[in-house]
């Protein structure tokens, strides 16, 4: 694709950079990390290849490039809903931007995503039609609340922003949203199936 900063789309030139340079291979590696993260809740994985504009983390950028496209409405919450991110998402993923209620994906800090019960939790006959929240975290560490459930051999610990909302979400199972937690180039998964307990 030829890149012309004067495209009629009216994007800022910065928006044209920071995508995957070699999408088929980079998105494949990124997906494997996301798959491991979601299949082994609480484990922390490193990803690379995206350089999204602030305030998005590398990991959130990688998740968007790997999973979002023109068929997946994306909600930008709080500071993420800025011109630079809107342009970057539009150019590199083509995801239509939308309000929280219609989103398949949403990105922002935990506080910005509140209240999380505004997101889709799926339908009783199609529980897959639920949102995936990409949560920007100040840091990720294997400490804090205890996680148990599918994907976890015994127990693991993960520095979650809170526990009450995740417990409420687990109570909805098989409905509920799924969560990817991002910090810098690190990512961890918290599917709706995970039981979360305060220590």
């Amino acid at each position: 694709m030829t890149i012309n900063p004067q495209t009629p789309m009216g994007l800022a030139p910065e928006a044209l950079f920071g995508g995957f340079a070699e999408a088929p291979v980079q998105s494949a590696r990124a997906f494997r990390a996301l798959l491991e993260a979601m299949a082994r809740p609480g484990t922390i994985w490193q990803v690379e290849g995206a350089a999204p504009p602030a305030p998005l983390s590398i990991a959130a950028g990688v998740a968007i490039l790997t999973l979002c496209d023109g068929t997946t409405p994306l909600h930008l919450a709080g500071a993420a809903d800025c011109l630079a991110v809107r342009d970057w998402v539009t150019f590199h993923a083509g995801a239509p931007l939308c309000a929280a209620q219609g989103a398949m994906f949403a990105v922002g800090t935990w506080a910005e995503l509140m209240p999380v019960d505004q997101f889709r939790i799926g339908d009783p006959d199609y529980p897959d039609r639920a949102a995936t929240l990409i949560v920007e975290m100040p840091a990720l560490a294997p400490t804090g609340p205890r996680l148990t459930g599918p994907g976890i051999r015994e127990t693991v610990h993960l520095s979650l922003p809170e526990t009450a909302a995740f417990r409420a979400n687990r109570a909805l199972f098989p409905l509920g949203f799924d969560t990817l937690l991002c910090s810098g180039d690190q990512i961890a998964g918290l599917p709706r199936s995970t039981h979360v307990e305060d220590l």
Binding site: S27, A28, L35, D128, D178, P191, R192, S193
Partner: peptide, 18 residues
């Protein structure tokens, strides 16, 4: 790539609801 993204999204939802 678009097809792979669609399949990958389905896989992640499958993992989330075993």
């Amino acid at each position: 790539e678009q097809t792979k993204r669609m399949i990958r999204r389905a896989i992640l939802k499958g993992v989330a609801v075993p």
